[in-house]
Design a binder for these strands. Structure first.
Lengths: 245, 245
DNA sequence: CCAAAAGTGTTTTGGGTACACCCATGA
DNA sequence: TCATGGGTGTACCCAAAACACTTTTGG
């Protein structure tokens, strides 16, 4: 769509309401066509790509801020959000890119502008339903869209490092979380679930072993058969016993 | 000892050099007499207990800041330091305790004092050699000492929650790190190493299984026998093959 | 010789992988 | 009936746990 909805800030931000020097960045994972997708936004007219991020309000819990940022960028609420690291590299203090953004947008600023300071980034990752996301650009960015994780545009500052660390955490925690819950349809075949796991982990898994492990985990409930129209036995479809978050 | 050494700041801090709103807290684990110890400092004349913490200089890498803070509080360098979480609860904005500290110390301040703002805390944990630590109080605190992790004093703000999360991370990562390297003497018996693991994990471990696993890990080198003076076979002593950090 | 703790060999178990085989389906 | 992919039983491997046994030491 691209239309501005009322919950998303259309007015210039009042920087006084925000904690200086602290940003929140989100690595938002989606899944489509056996590809792991990441949500990336592009700043207006500048050709600068970045993870969707935001800032911490002075009266706001850190976790709430992450949820709000995610909501403002994707319209999604109550998503599984995981804080995984805080980045504080001095390279983050490179004001070049943001300088460009402000200049290209004819926004007045001096060197003490809120956006031109050093930030440390408290970073979260989220798994969201690819199909339910309506990426909408905000006042500073003119595009917000999914990129295949293998073909990301060059990202500003250390955002690529942030993405890599998020992926590392996602891979390490894949067994402890119900990964498919937000990344697949309500019902899915075992092969579809396995494809998702293989995409995230970046490696092939044993088919029968995967099948057995998933069934023994108790996370799955088997429903009826699915007609594929293909020349082979029709697979069962499954759903997660846990409710969608 | 308690004497001020030259590397520790004796002068009032120049708050201009520091990032506002960002603190660094360290959960420093030691080990002694089958007890897990935590380093806690007490603010002068106020009866307020806190984790040793500090602030991030504007020109400083986050990780370097954590190392510096640890150094200033314990005199230890180059310790295994692990960032595990960033805490941002609004309760952290409770200025009561710090207000008390400043007042009791007759330090001039107004409500915009650096220490009286909301902080988010980037938190690290470290494993240090109990015996090599010379806890020295700094300008704001009048004691800095080890506490048994089961008998901590009431800690300010959310510091107890920080400690609990650090312990959780320590337990989860115990297999992936050479836990005893800084927590035991240079040489130790297998039983002493097992005692350490059991103390950290808070549960009994199988003796023979532990023995075998440790030997197979390749982390240990067996040295000579140790005379215990007890009425039983004398154990071997071991050391880590990896160098002390 | 006994008790206590250390060290080690043997057995059992359980999870993971590999492989074989059957099943269902449409061409 | 063949090819294809889904589901399941069986065999095997390896690491961890459980157990038994021996060794060493001081009393």
């Amino acid at each position: 769509m691209g239309t501005m909805t009322d919950h998303r800030p259309a007015e210039p931000m009042n920087w006084e309401l925000y904690m200086p020097g602290i940003s929140i960045d989100c690595v938002i994972f989606g899944y489509h066509n056996k590809e792991l997708k990441i949500l990336i936004l592009e700043y207006k007219k500048s050709g600068i790509f970045a993870l969707p991020g935001g800032f911490l309000r002075k009266d706001e819990e850190l976790k709430d801020a992450a949820k709000r940022v995610l909501f403002e960028r994707t319209g999604l609420r109550d998503i599984y959000l995981n804080q995984f690291h805080t980045f504080g590299s001095l390279k983050r203090g490179d004001i070049g890119p943001m300088h460009t953004v402000l200049r290209k947008n004819n926004m007045p600023f001096d060197n003490r502008h809120f956006l031109l300071q050093r930030f440390i980034s408290v970073s979260y990752y989220a798994l969201v339903d690819f199909k339910q996301v309506d990426p909408v650009a905000d006042i500073l960015s003119d595009s917000c869209q999914w990129y295949d994780s293998h073909h990301l545009p060059p990202l500003m500052l250390d955002h690529h490092e942030i993405f890599e660390k998020a992926l590392e955490h996602l891979r390490n925690n894949i067994d402890r979380s119900v990964v498919g819950l937000n990344l697949l349809d309500d019902t899915f075949t075992m092969r579809e679930l396995q494809n998702l796991y293989e995409t995230i982990l970046g490696e092939k898994l044993n088919r029968t072993g995967f099948h057995r492990k998933m069934m023994l985990s108790g996370q799955l409930k088997r429903l009826g058969k699915k007609k594929t129209g293909k020349a082979h036995r029709s697979p069962f479809v499954y759903k997660f016993t846990e409710e969608k978050k």
